[in-house]
Write a protein that binds this DNA or RNA. Sequence first.
DNA 1: CTCAACATGTAACTCGTTACATGATTGA
DNA 2: TCAATCATGTAACGAGTTACATGTTGAG
Lengths: 165, 165
Amino acid sequence: MSGYELSSRFEASVGSTWSAGHSQIYPELVRLAADGLVEAGEPGPRGRKTYAVTAAGRDAVQAWLADTEPDRTVRDEAALRTFFLWLMTPEAARDHVQDELDAAEQSLDGLRLLAARRRPATPAERSQRIALEAGLRTTQARVGWARWALERLDDQAGRDDHPPG
Amino acid sequence: MSGYELSSRFEASVGSTWSAGHSQIYPELVRLAADGLVEAGEPGPRGRKTYAVTAAGRDAVQAWLADTEPDRTVRDEAALRTFFLWLMTPEAARDHVQDELDAAEQSLDGLRLLAARRRPATPAERSQRIALEAGLRTTQARVGWARWALERLDDQAGRDDHPPG
DNA sequence: CTCAACATGTAACTCGTTACATGATTGA
DNA sequence: TCAATCATGTAACGAGTTACATGTTGAG
């Protein structure tokens, strides 16, 4: 697969959990090739370079999966902003949550499209389906949250003195 | 509030959505002070330095909230690994998902504790409660996903030829 | 012929983590 | 007195983003 292709596929498949721009991928492929984890194939039409995983590369992935703990650090800017809802005008706060709702619904549409494709046949596809399900469920949760939050904000608007504008 | 205190509170409150180590906080406070967004107060007992937000600082936060779009980039290493379930032995795959389940359940316990505290009284507390709800719901979704995934893996184990060990 | 998509790279910068380094105060 | 906790910093490194920079191929 070429760097360009990797870059596109990243967006399309694992893109919901991780992303990488081409400026990160090209140098990394060179590095991986130097380490013998991938090897370059025949150059294609317009300067296209393809790489294939080597046995050592596959081992390295498996070693990573087996020997290292996942880093569970979360970094969710939209959620962070929710902590500061009280610094916004009631309208801005509502807009923020509405934006979250829209974003989540849109993301959900995309994921559902992927899920509807064809039923997974290979082990790799079955894994992808399981990973996709995680996205589906957490995104549904975000949709549910945003609807709940909107109601709650509207409820509060009736009673409260609003913070500074 | 001092840098040390900020560092601890980060962990305890917004920690579920964002984190920062002390090595990031101390230099940042110096920078913010130089920009007039916070100001240093009287030094305390053991070299303790306290800072307070200035009006300019509050404005800057509000400008950030109002003028910039949240970055919705997700980076979820545990979810990424799920894409590679098929490269693991069936046991390792199951363990991975079980670890996710354990982590999610533990995180959920912590969030529930926070949610049970006292009912929010101030606008800031109400915002925190709404933010917390997001954590609660997405974490519940992760628990649900992990249980579903375990069942699915066990189902498959009965039928499939397993990939390389 | 021209535009979109294919295709690859480099450089500067920012953000965050890990490790290094030090010292004061308090309670057991 | 000794350990934990409070308290603050710096330096090196790695990961990732943005912007810069260039060239090819195919379709309309």
